[in-house]
Simulated assay, not measured.
Amino acid sequence: MFDKTALTIEDQIEKLKNRGLEIYPEDNAAHYLSHISYYRLGEYWHSMQEDKQDHIFKPHSRFKDVISLYMFDRELRLLLFDVIEKIEISLRTKIIYHLSHEIDPWWFQNFNLFIDSKALVKTLSNLDDELARSKDITIKNHFKKHKDDLRFPPAWKSLEQTSFGALSKLYGNLKHTVNSKDVIAQEYGAVNHTFLPSWLQSIAQIRNYCAHHSRLWNRNLPGAPKLLSKPPFPWIENVPKHHEFQRLYIHLCLMKYLLNIIQPSNKFTQRLQELFDNHENVDPNALGMKENWFNEPLWK
């Protein structure tokens, strides 16, 4: 039976000290613990413990380094959220444009175009909920003006209301005979439909971590994106092994690859370098970063 009781902030600090974490008055530990929960910070000091069973810290483990790790992770999420926003808006634009021209503005309701009908039902159900909740004036006016039209609003209205995850699932679920599936992949330098769906699923997953303020530092990521053997645009020469795909680095590379097409003059490399420079205690290996990653053709 779980029998632990809630601790006061003073008791939390005392427990950490007793376990070997160095905490000094200038660390403002009480302030941080009053705004960032003990449980959340625990995800960052866990790696500092040499005895995970009794939670005993390694020698010279410092509270200020825990906070630095936390701040690094927070700033990393904000940086990636900014990058992913650009990818999401671009993907939304391309999916709406190409499919609406190839098929019609209601292509996303056409079950004949999709591989998995059950997955499409779920996607459309979620979209229906999003539209019902939407406060967007264009959606409200559409339903008011077209009461007798029982279809969803056209793609350029409906799909502006859906999530990046739903967009990536719609794209991945398209039958391979739909020409736009390859056209979109080619425009992103992914050659054909074989590779892009796994890239988008990877990025959508990381976007969810960012949106829910979940830890990215030192996290094992499920799933493995499919990589091109010879990408048409600058890529990395030191490609991680398959077992390294659980780390963030390869996913950062895919974001950078897409961003270089969407916004060629982007500052992603500089911003990522500055983040590491500002938090020197952060071990880049915890993200799977390769040595001299910034000198790779992709990141230059």
Rank of each mutant, 00 (worst) to 15 (best):
D3G: 10
A6H: 05
I13W: 05
E14C: 13
L16R: 00
G20E: 08
G20Q: 13
L21H: 03
E22W: 10
Y24D: 12
E26G: 02
A30F: 08
S37D: 02
R40P: 15
R40L: 14
D51W: 11
P59K: 01
H60M: 02
I67S: 09
M71T: 11
F72L: 07
E75Y: 08
R77H: 06
I84A: 06
E88G: 00
I89S: 06
R92L: 14
H101W: 03
W106T: 03
Q109L: 07
N112F: 07
F114Y: 10
K118A: 09
L120F: 11
S125A: 03
N126I: 13
A132C: 12
K135S: 08
T138F: 12
L150G: 02
R151H: 07
P153N: 03
P154E: 06
A155R: 00
S158I: 10
Q161P: 04
A166L: 12
K181H: 07
V191Q: 03
H193M: 06
H193P: 05
T194D: 08
T194C: 14
P197K: 06
S198I: 11
W199K: 04
W199S: 02
L200M: 13
S202K: 08
C210H: 05
S214C: 10
P225L: 14
S229R: 15
K230C: 14
K230H: 15
I236L: 09
N238D: 10
V239G: 03
H242P: 03
L248N: 00
I250P: 03
I261R: 15
K267S: 03
K267D: 06
F268M: 10
D277A: 03
N281G: 12
D283H: 12
P284L: 05
P284N: 02
L287E: 01
E296K: 04
